[in-house]
Design a protein around this nucleic acid. Structure first.
Length: 576
RNA sequence: CGGGAUGUAGCGCAGUUUGGUUAGCGCGCGUGCCUUGGGAGCACGAGGACGGGGGUUCAAGUCCCCCCAUCCCGACCA
């Protein structure tokens, strides 16, 4: 027989008080409801209920990966540095890679992702175009030594991820694999009950060209998404990647450049106010430090620099605002007075800056700015790029409508990688004509544990979690109000056994607790359906209560199975 | 990594400013009685040596130094 699903024997340590460390809803509730416990910063144990939810999500993912033609494998977490040297990422990945040595002093790392390992596998095993396309995936632990783990399962250092890799003969094949995965992801996140949006994304450290992120919409999300309100346009992108129509507005009228004294006036807003100019007429000069040296980035005063775009444009691994001392060394003035004129640093000019005809810029000396500065005449504009951060209200790059913005949790990301890894790790095949060609790859990740937290972010109330049926740890809780009273106990047991036999995931709260405690726990844990066996037990009647709406019905025991089944199948649920 | 804060019982906190009996409170936990439709009540009880190390002092949870851990705010990612 199956294991006893009796709450008295399960480890479900609910907490009445909120641990001080928990900030966001999912973290707080998963701790309080007894789903997870912290082991170290960003490292958690999944308790029985947490493990059940996680398995539910994994199974949905597995079904959809299989449906899309994926084959499940399992690769080691421990990876030899050798593989990472070959792709060049041993250096590129930086401190986020957990590194360790074996007893012989050889370097290893804990896998944050598996492009190297799987490409090496495929390189060794795949020779012919007849073996392609190939979709391989796994579900397992991943390790990233995050700068700042936080929010419980939302950003851990150890987490569970599904990663699938596609191997195709050419780019057309890759696009087909990518499309399949896009559809599979849409099905998965719909099935787990998330309100999500697929958006265009930057490719970051993984590399590649085209990429989409799947964002669960939530205030706790760390990502910001902009999207077009016109659904037929449908533009949506991570702000890191988002573009906007450039303003073509010409600002100011050409005139002779002039030096003005601006004591203590630093920020674009201050400069604009001091000079009596609109902020957009200021040209901001920001000094960045990279591993290749300092660079200056120029944007309009009313814009912000998008550091991801700038980083990609420059092709550098490290990019951060230069400190005060470096700025002073490079410009001869404290921050706030940097400008492009006479500056001996590479200049990256945002394309909107070209339309400023009489800008104000720092003079690279304390307490002074130039006005009537004309780009191209007064400073060189060889390196022009889109480096501005898009924000809400900016015009959609496709249709020009004002963009909206929301916060999201990145629960999945898909990439078209191309041949970056196959060339590095020697994954080639022979085509029909016997010619050697690189395998064209894609990779596709889903954060399983993060998805679990995202579901909680979207499905909870003051009392606790409200699990969607598809991922609930148990679908039904049978709750005898007083387990010591024979009629209640017997009826509860009867219903519990009946539902179990029918394959319904049911848990019996057989604890000798007072009713209030049981009710509070039931709401906190978030079972979608509760069957209360109480004062009507003697008449053979029980109450069904929906966690989501709070609705409840008194039904006789003969009707229970039908009602429960109808609810679980998502049919109309009524008193009948 | 930079900035801010915290570390006292399983959880939440007080005590630290102004060193001084035996370190407290609520919840939780154990036993008993009582109670049983929204985290009951009474009684008894167990549990910490104050994140770690060093120092000052007759005396340190309290003052000083170093270290560690955790959380929050900024630059990265599933």
């Amino acid at each position: 027989m199956d294991q006893a699903l009796r709450l008295s024997t399960w480890l479900v340590p609910t907490l009445r008080e909120v641990p001080a460390e928990a900030e966001v809803a999912s973290h707080r509730l998963l701790l309080r409801a007894g789903f997870i416990r912290k082991v170290a910063a960003g490292i958690y144990t999944l308790l029985p209920l947490g493990k059940r939810v996680c398995s539910k999500i994994e199974n949905i993912v597995r079904e959809e990966m299989n449906r899309a033609g994926g084959q499940e494998i399992l690769m080691p977490i421990l990876q030899p540095a050798e593989l990472w040297h070959r792709s060049g990422r041993w250096e590129v990945y930086g401190p986020e890679l957990f590194r360790l040595k074996d007893r012989h002093g050889r370097d290893f790392c804990l896998g944050p992702t598996h492009e190297e390992m799987i490409t090496a596998l495929v390189a060794a095993e795949v020779r012919s175009y007849k073996q392609l396309p190939l979709l391989l995936y796994q579900i397992g632990n991943k390790y990233r030594d995050e700068r700042r783990p936080r929010f419980g399962l939302l950003r851990g250092r150890e987490f569970i991820m599904k990663d699938l890799y596609s191997f195709d003969r050419d780019w057309a094949g890759l696009e087909e694999s990518y499309r399949k995965m896009y559809e599979a992801y849409t099905r998965i996140f719909t099935r787990v009950g998330l309100n999500f949006r697929a958006v265009e994304a930057d490719t970051g450290a993984i590399g590649g060209s085209v990429s989409h992120e799947f964002m669960a919409l939530a205030e706790a999300g760390e990502a910001v998404v902009v999207y077009c309100p016109d659904t037929t346009c449908g533009y949506a992108a991570n702000v890191e990647k988002a573009e906007s129509l450039s303003s073509l507005e010409e600002i100011g009228e050409e005139g002779p450049i002039e030096l003005v004294v601006t004591p203590g006036v630093r920020s674009a807003e201050e400069v604009a106010a001091f000079l009596g100019l609109p902020v957009k007429q200021i040209i901001k000069t920001l000094i960045y430090r990279t591993e290749k040296g300092l660079v200056a980035a120029l944007v309009r005063g009313d814009r912000e620099v998008n550091e991801v775009k700038l980083q990609n444009h420059l092709g550098v691994l490290e990019l951060e605002l230069a400190g005060e001392d470096l700025v002073e060394e490079a410009t001869g003035a404290p921050p706030g007075f940097a400008g492009p004129i006479g500056l001996s640093l590479p200049l990256v000019v945002d394309r909107e800056v070209l339309h400023v005809k009489a800008g104000a810029v720092g003079a690279n000396r304390p307490d002074a700015h130039y006005i009537n500065v004309l780009p191209g005449r007064d400073f060189p504009v060889q390196d022009v790029a889109d480096i501005r951060q898009v924000s809400e209200g900016d015009p959609c790059p496709r249709c020009g409508r004002p963009l909206l913005s929301v916060r999201g949790i990145e629960v999945g990301q898909i990439f078209q990688l191309g041949d970056k890894y196959s060339r590095a790790l020697n994954a080639y095949y022979l085509d029909e004509r016997g010619e050697k060609r690189p395998i064209i790859m894609g990779c596709y990740g889903i954060g399983i544990t993060r998805t679990m937290a995202a579901v909680v972010e979207q499905h909870h109330d003051e009392e606790g979690i409200i699990w969607p049926v598809a991922v609930a740890p148990f679908q039904v809780l049978v709750l005898p109000v007083n387990y010591e009273e024979a009629p209640q106990r017997e009826l509860a047991e009867e219903i519990y056994n009946l539902l179990r036999e029918k394959g319904i995931e049911v848990l019996l709260d057989d604890r000798e607790e007072r009713p209030g405690v049981k009710f509070k726990d039931a709401d906190l844990v978030g079972y979608p359906l509760r069957i209360t066996v109480g004062r009507h037990a003697a008449e053979g009647k029980v109450e069904l209560k929906l966690r989501r709406t709070g609705e409840n019905w008194l039904v006789s025991k003969g009707e229970v199975l039908e009602k429960v089944t109808a609810f679980l199948e998502g049919k109309e649920f009524c008193t009948g």
